[in-house]
């Protein structure tokens, strides 16, 4: 806006600052809590400045886990979450980009039908199909495994749809030029389409990684072995400590750790985003 209205500027800044405060304050409190000894959280007065137990608390959760909840080390849960999120993100991208390639570039019978069948599955999120999916996974003996955690979540109509829309914007002449240059379908896909989709892949990866990381219900169902617990469900289990007060300082430390990887992914991939956007041309 080029309009010069000082009060409007002040007002919008105030609104934005309030927004930042509302978002940031809980995270700050979680961080502060993770740096205090156990009893200061239970004293009734929530501290607002960091305490001196930070290294100790983090070392405990990473190394040995939250004792009171009988939990496994947070390091293991982080690793499980990471593997699951990565498998989901990579799997979703791989499958949907290939599906979109087939739908856009190949003329086969029932092409439109295939697209719409994929599209319709958008209406069926995990929660709706959770019982039959569990049945399938159980009978395939994939409970308590990384495959069981990730495979049922891999099929993605959204990603297929996004790649399809992107492929439709790639000029047809590019495919024709590649044909004349002697590139077969796979070569065209690998040499031309994949590099051109780089920014889309990066964007989707961020979204899908966080989607995978935040999975709660599904890991809760398919894992009974502690060794496969993921961090998001792990935090919830820590709260259900038997015969003890919840160890808030350690739970908060775990929460902070759980937030870290998605933040890192966003920060790291954002650079790739921008780089890709600058290079993109009509």
């Amino acid at each position: 806006m080029v309009e010069n209205r000082p009060w409007l500027t002040v007002f919008s800044h105030v609104v934005l600052c309030l927004g930042v405060l509302v978002t940031a304050l809980p995270i700050w409190i979680a961080f502060v809590a993770s740096t205090h000894p156990a009893d200061s959280m239970l004293s009734g007065r929530t501290p607002l400045l960091p305490g001196g137990n930070m290294l100790e608390n983090y070392a405990t959760v990473l190394g040995s886990g939250v004792k009171a909840a009988g939990s496994i080390p947070v390091g293991t849960m982080l690793w499980n979450s990471f593997v699951m999120a990565l498998m989901i993100a990579v799997g979703k991208i791989a499958i949907s980009i290939i599906a979109a390639y087939a739908i856009v570039y190949f003329r086969f019978p029932l092409r439109k039908t295939c697209f719409w069948v994929i599209f319709i599955t958008l209406m069926l999120p995990v929660e709706v199909r959770i019982l039959p999916t569990f049945g399938v996974v159980a009978s395939l003996d994939m409970l308590n495994s990384y495959w069981g955690l990730s495979v049922p979540l891999i099929a993605s109509a959204t990603a297929t749809f996004l790649f399809r829309q992107f492929f439709l914007t790639v000029p047809e002449e590019l495919a024709e030029a590649a044909r004349i240059d002697g590139a077969g379908p796979l070569k065209f896909f690998r040499d031309i389409l994949l590099p051109l989709s780089r920014t889309n892949i990066a964007a989707l990866f961020v979204i899908l990684f966080i989607f995978g990381w935040n999975q709660y219900l599904w890991p809760l169902l398919v894992t009974t072995d502690e060794g496969f617990y993921t961090i998001v469900m792990g935090i919830q289990r820590m709260l259900q400590a038997e015969d003890a007060e919840p160890a808030w300082h350690e739970i908060m430390a775990t929460s902070m750790l759980a937030m870290l990887p998605p933040v890192l992914v966003v920060v790291f991939m954002q650079r790739l985003f921008v780089k890709g956007l600058i290079e993109q041309e009509k």
Binding site: P171, E173, L174, E176, A177, A178, R179, I180, D181, G182, A183, D191, I192, P195, L196, R198, E279, Q280, E281
Partner: peptide, 18 residues
């Protein structure tokens, strides 16, 4: 097309942007 030993110049050039 690749086996016909021809080369084509397109209206929008169709250069590989990457």
């Amino acid at each position: 097309p690749a086996d016909r030993n021809i080369a084509m110049v397109f209206q929008n050039y169709a250069l590989y942007p990457h």
